[in-house]
Design a protein around this nucleic acid. Structure first.
Lengths: 221, 221
DNA sequence: AGCGTTGTTGTCCAGTTGTATAACACCAGA
DNA sequence: TCTGGTGTTATACAACTGGACAACAACGCT
């Protein structure tokens, strides 16, 4: 009796690899880095779990690649977003609340970084990039004479901390809503950079940071 | 041939239960809520893993009890700490950086809360209590005529967000040190409450929040 | 047309996990 | 002294995990 074998749907190496990474990232947003299994990823992609091994030699490789992809693509889309905006709008857009799916990945990375060196490294890189980007935005605001900053790098660090903390209260604990979250961050930023109260709320481009371009497609199928 | 059975070291129900909860919490601080295993907990306590089932009917019950214990005891020790200090010292003590072990538990709870309703409930309760406590401290500062606040509850929420965000940068990403972490939080608080710069750093009681009394023993054996 | 490469499948395996349960040991009260 | 409750052990089990491998099928190249 001849074995019945389903005709495989063949894809190019890069395409399939990308598919797997995106599926992994999607699952990480729901189950966490420690919670995703090779079989779940395979099911999500629609293949057999053995195939994952053909692209990633180990599970750690897979989740590391997924997080690396998240970091890289989100930063790229954010940079693209900022380029098209005037200084104040860019500042508001950057500080505005991050969408829930993305936040879930970051916070999970924070907690997992202590156990997975690869995650810690990627997280560190991402964080430094974020701080640099925000510093550049602050510089633009100052250069345009719209605000002031004694130490843009320090202010960038401060505002990054506020944004992260507010994101926790908003997404993680559900203690505050989007409007309130933005109010807090905008308020601190306006006070810190000498902007008139309400400036950032008015300048805030509607879709929040990370919902742009590839950013929106980051976790899409 | 008679079976050899080790003579069991018998303990009172409450005592053993407490032992198990503390061991669980200790492991959670290292491996995360999703990472702790009944067998690891049993080994840490020095018993057989079947015994855990005798005290907690399910694994979820165990981790929920462990987190509940963490929340309750940390808040109790924090309250005790604040009572003995003058308003400004209390504010500084509350805002000062949290020790690493404790932080690891909270951040892990943030990420796990989305999947475990019991954790989400305990986290929500803990967060509200923290906000209330800080609000009371701000009230004390204002009542003593040492600072001002248009909306103590809102300022409490803001400062809680800043403290959480700074804790992430300090413990999770290791981007900043203790001194810098405290500088940021103290700076925002002083500006927000109209205190002279440096007031909080000078008033800061050396051992940071959570290292007090039972707080220090929280994760101890 | 023939052939090596590679994307893909199906199956196997050893290890770990949470849960279950029977047997035992100690203790208090009848 | 018996007896029932309970703290404790040992063992079993089904489910699931990451990893390994041989077989197969489509493709590119000559």
């Amino acid at each position: 009796m001849a074995e019945q074998r389903k005709a495989p749907e063949r894809k190019s190496s890069d395409e399939r690899r990308d598919e797997i990474v995106r599926a992994t990232l999607r699952l990480v947003a729901v189950k966490g880095f420690a919670g995703v299994t090779l079989r779940e990823v395979a099911t999500e992609v629609g293949v057999v779990h053995g195939l994952i091994r053909h692209y990633f030699s180990t599970r750690d490789d897979l989740v590391a690649a997924a997080f690396d992809f998240a970091v890289t693509s989100e930063l790229a889309s954010d940079r693209a977003m900022l380029d098209g905006l005037d200084p104040v709008a860019a500042l508001a857009g950057w500080l505005a609340s991050t969408p829930e799916d993305h936040y879930r990945v970051w916070i999970d990375a924070w907690s997992e970084a202590g156990r997975t060196p690869a995650l810690a490294a990627a997280l560190d890189r991402h964080h430094r990039d974020c701080e640099r980007i925000l510093t550049a935005v602050i510089d633009r605001v100052v250069d345009a004479g719209l605000g002031s900053s004694a130490n843009p790098a320090a202010d960038s660090r401060l505002l990054t901390a506020v944004a992260d903390g507010v994101a926790v209260q908003h997404h993680g604990i559900a203690a505050i809503g989007v409007t309130e979250a933005n109010d807090i961050v905008f308020g601190v930023a306006e006070r810190q950079l000498g902007l008139a109260p309400g400036t950032l709320a008015r300048a805030n481009p509607v879709p929040a940071r990370g919902q742009w371009a590839e950013g929106a497609a980051l976790l899409a199928r």
